[in-house]
Design a protein around this nucleic acid. Structure first.
Length: 350
DNA sequence: AAGTCGGGGGC
DNA sequence: GCCCCAGACTT
């Protein structure tokens, strides 16, 4: 897997990295296993600029891996709120606890042991081992896929298993004998700053002399983009029930599917089920609802049109007080709760 | 091999 | 609007 390909790719990349790489990223100072792991999880499908403020706040709340393990899932989700892909937060928490129980409070320095932990796949495991310890393992994220597709002139969407398999092989073949931490960072810096998706700066590229796509004039068509598909649309009624104190009734979402375990507004597919839910939990007239303007929200795989219904000065029925998944929340409490981003915006705009 | 899982940025 | 982003996991 890590057979050495006799070329200058890694050497040229490292030379470039020394003077042109991003040496100021917060997770590099210091570059500890915990900070590398946390940054890698946050950076999954998420851009650096988005991650930086979350990374700082998260570390302040949970300075060490044992701190994270000792925290409640709710507190972790609150720190994660707005970052998306909330399974990452649940997996992060579960992995912290597993490390305390099985690995002495540290991340294991072993590829298979890392991959066995929730939320860590082959690429993230390679990134952790190479960056935290300098161990010789490849990564294959969006940056590396784009660089390899162009450098080797590989056609086909990189999400296809056959293409991905070929890229893993090439990524392993390019590994240098030393400086693995810098090499891993250098690949991502190259993809993020020069070998960008649109308008790449090929004339500044340290590996332009060996790039097949540049030689053949195919830079703009590689990597092959994902085959498109029309997004399905769904509509939902969201219930915005306020009491006399101005508190809003929130409901914890189910532990699986979208926005799992987050606090959100009660949701119903249609007016019949909305009315039934309302009458079971609240004292008041459903038909006095005020229909607010539609709130559209786009996920990766469907589009959701939310239709908020608002009531004021409602009272709860007894069932609400006995339900651990329902609670009245004041505006001041919102920052401490894990809410989906569009729901948080909706509540803050009131 | 395809679907699920967020939110934001770039064009 | 569409695609992508330091992907992993389930079916």
């Amino acid at each position: 897997m890590t057979t050495t390909l006799v070329d200058s790719f890694a050497a040229q990349l490292l030379d470039w990295f020394d003077h042109a790489g991003r040496h100021d990223l917060p997770w590099l100072h210091p570059r500890t296993p915990y900070r590398v792991w946390l940054s890698e999880i946050m950076l999954q499908q998420t851009q650096v600029k988005t991650v930086i403020p979350y990374f700082a706040r998260f570390l302040q709340a949970f300075p060490t891996l044992p701190d994270l393990a000792a925290a409640s899932l709710d507190d972790v989700l609150a720190q994660w709120s707005g970052l998306g892909y909330y399974a990452r937060a649940r997996n992060l928490h579960a992995t912290a606890r597993a490390c305390v129980e099985r690995h002495g409070g540290d991340l294991p320095r072993d590829l298979d042991a890392l991959i066995a932990l929730p939320g860590i796949g082959r690429s993230t495991a390679g990134a952790i081992l190479s960056q935290a310890w300098g161990d010789r393992f490849p990564i294959l994220d969006g940056n590396v896929k784009r660089v390899l597709a162009r450098y080797h002139g590989i056609a086909g969407w990189p999400g296809l298993p056959a293409v991905e398999k070929q890229m893993w092989s090439l990524a392993g073949a390019h590994l240098p004998e030393a400086r693995m931490a810098d090499y891993t960072q250098a690949q991502m810096d190259l993809g993020a700053t020069l070998c960008t998706r649109s308008d790449p700066a090929c004339m500044l590229c340290p590996v332009q002399s060996g790039c097949v796509a540049l030689r053949d004039g195919r830079v703009d068509e590689l990597p092959t983009s994902k085959p498109g598909k029309a997004l399905p649309e769904r509509t939902a009624l969201v219930l915005l029930a306020a009491n006399a104190a101005g508190q809003v009734l929130l409901q914890r979402r189910p532990p699986s599917s979208i926005w799992a375990s987050l606090w959100s507004l009660p949701e119903a597919a249609d007016h019949d089920s909305a009315r039934a839910w309302f009458e079971r939990h609240l004292a008041g007239e459903y038909d006095r609802a005020e229909a607010l303007v539609e709130v559209p929200h786009v996920f990766s795989h469907y589009k959701l049109r939310m239709h908020p219904l608002r009531w004021r000065d409602l009272q709860a029925r007894a069932a609400v007080n006995d339900n651990a998944d329902l609670r009245w929340v004041s505006a001041a409490e919102l920052p401490q709760l894990g809410l989906p981003a569009p729901i948080r915006r909706m509540l803050q705009s009131l």
